[in-house]
Design a protein around this nucleic acid. Sequence first.
RNA 1: GCGGGCGUGAUGGAAUGGUAGACAUAUCGGACUUAAAAUCCGAAGGCCUUAGUGCCGUGUGGGUUCGAGUCCCACCGCCCGCACCA
Length: 851
Amino acid sequence: MASYAPAEIEARWQKAWDEAGLFRASRDESRPKYYVLEMFPYPSGRIHIGHVRNYTMGDVIARYKRSQGFNVLHPMGFDAFGMPAENAAMKSGGHPKTWTYQNIDDMVAQMKPMGFSLDWERMFATCDPEYYGQQQALFLDFLEAGLVYRKNAVVNWDPVDQTVLANEQVIDGRGWRSDAEVERRELTQWFFKISEYSGDLLDALQGLEEWPAKVRLMQENWIGRSRGLEFSFEQVDGGDSIPVYTTRPDTLMGASFVGISPDHPIVKGMESTNPKLAAAVAEMRKGGTTAEALEKAEKLGFDTGLRVKHPLDPNWELPVWVANFILMDYGTGAIFGCPAHDQRDLDFCRKYNLPVIDTFFALGDETPVAHEAFVPPKTEKVAWVNHFAGITEATGQEAIDATIDFAEQNGWGSGKTQYRLRDWGLSRQRYWGCPIPVVHCDTCGVVPEKKENLPIQLPDDVSFDIPGNPLDRHPSWRDCSCPKCGKPAKRETDTMDTFVDSSWYFARFTAPRASTPTDLADAGYWMNVDQYIGGVEHAILHLLYSRFFARGMIKTGHLPEKCAEPFNALFTQGMVTHAIYKNAERSDENGQAIYHFPEEVETREGGTFVKDTGEAIKVIPSAKMSKSKNNVVDPMDIIARFGADTARWFVLSDSPPERDVEWTASGAEAAHKHLTRVWNLCDRIAAMDEGTGDDGALRKDLHKTIHDVTMGIESFGFNAAIAKLYAFTNTLSKAKASKAMMREAIMTLAQLMAPMTPHLAEDIWNHQGGEGLCAAAPWPKADEALLVDDMVTLPIQINGKRRAEIEVPKDMPKPEIEALVLKQEAVVKALDGGEPKKLIVVPGRIVNVVL
RNA sequence: GCGGGCGUGAUGGAAUGGUAGACAUAUCGGACUUAAAAUCCGAAGGCCUUAGUGCCGUGUGGGUUCGAGUCCCACCGCCCGCACCA
């Protein structure tokens, strides 16, 4: 046998798997199914080492489950709509479609050599009309079911590019591309009614036991349930009353103003007649809607001149202020301000000279609030000095409950559960997305497209040389006839948020060519996803939207009831990082730091230096890979140098999968060396003559390894499983045993390695005369009887410190062990003729002598 | 500010409340070689006028326990998520 040549081996076995159709999934009710899915990639054109880690983890699970007898579905596709394609078109004049499909081809060509056990026949891209047409059908069904609606919403508007910007595209209040100051503009937009499921989406998190607690918590906070009081302030001069919502109704007696959002209907009504107010409000509306922009913004207020009556005292008048920190889309868009017990309100009141009224004090400390608001703790008793219900001492929660009861009994307010979660705006003023299948007719209004007209395809003849959405200026596409009355009408030119595309692709994979969005029989068999794997950056939006979509699809009959939670288990993997080599001695002519490629530097005594110039390098370890920092490693380079198995082995080694792993050249080389060692070992065993030795000892080690590796894979402890495989390889290479036993050991080792290094495993299997393909062989089973040693080493502790050890048969009765322990020299010495206070024997584990 | 997580050798990291440091990297030593690389073998937490079945040791301080890296409390440090949410 020649030396380890991954390039040749890997191509050969990929072809063999392909020809055997091993990874093609088909419905088979007689076998248990297993659906493993990695979050599908955006087709940037290059696979990233992070993709390799993600898909390798999924592949380990897929291959492992397959060898356990499961009917495995492991598909791959592309999340192919989105802005980068349009940006590329604007920059270099191509078409988003050609750019995207070219990238997909390139990425498939890069993924295939990795040897992932994917069912490529199910592949699709979300920009395929066959996919987005079905998405349009879903949209229409959601519309009919009341899960989609239109309303006015405030958006970030880029006046130069003539487009809506996502929050991430607003940088320091300016458009990321145009650098123009972003305006807040109100547009009519489509929304998914995700808020209909707020409570359910929150409560159901409880049942997702195989999700990381962190992700569940993030979703919980995102949905944000709170319980409070809703009531209205009557205007003194009889105008519209102002409803408010508060989670701290107990502070009502400390109210000193009513605040309303700049987008509140009352403000809108006053703007035309009150130029000063209009100017103030215009100032408040400037800047983006991002959290960041809001945080930096100074608190601004303007007295509307309106006055309202305090609900508990009709003679107590409160001023109504417009305040920029009040959000129209949370609660009612109006609050009452209680400066003494809310820091934000206090800041506002100090700025505009509004009164501060103390309502609560910490017990025994009646210092009036000055610069720091006193928030009454919910679980500790506080003094209620300014009350209405005769209670003078209560916890915050008791005070809240008492106030809600009081309001409900007196009929001026009611308790209300409020969610932070807002409806999901899906309209995007972009070309490269799924067209929203509705038509605007002067006679009939908004009319849904007829299903038989789907897909509403994107036109190909568009240009990106002028800003704005090309669909808006494409008359032959835009102009159409009304599906209802037949008169001339205009197509909706907005397209859908790309999050829509990724909110149901997992369901489509179960029947990717079906003529309806899903096939209920296929979905019923394959769903739910048993194991979903991806980056934690999708912990909130993508996963929440998918959970909503699953519910919507059940409601519209596209998924069976059991699919409300489409992902049984979720795993969020860490990044692959790489050190950054920053020149410590100089910057470039523009004063920018100089970053060196790894191959330009060397580490020697005293530090790291540039090879050519000897300049000192500052090494920043474990940084996110970034082109501008010259620390990106390309998976294709690694495959060319070491092969796919090495890349797969390395990304799983050393670090637990949920944590970041640092790519190091030495680590990758070590992985490759190890695989070579295993290969050579296989060669040596094949060349052995009969040989003799302790077969029993080797078999024991082997079965312990089977057990440990199996447990490791089951629990996502890939790094630990790999460590066991290293250890067993060391054992095997030193073992003295019969050829038959050695052969059994190397073949089992190959099987255990197969999920991680499938090509090498296949080759060893074949080389040792294994039957069929290793990838199709059943997973080895550890013999329980071999997992326990006949003789065990018992450490002996004296007062919890290890002082001696004894070698005893594993089933030696306690009294005998005790007798043996007491005879130990160290124990005799420690006892010094006395009796131990206590003698603890944990069979097979440890002995502790307490003096 | 709110919520969560993590602190173990030079480094990445192991360790169902039971022998801390598995496995790997880097380092050092040896074999092979004219030499180097590759390969193989080996050493390695710290401390020491006592080199020992010695003492100390998992961020710091306390607690529970026969026994704590692991559980509880407080503190320090780092990381992540959310945040003008009424």
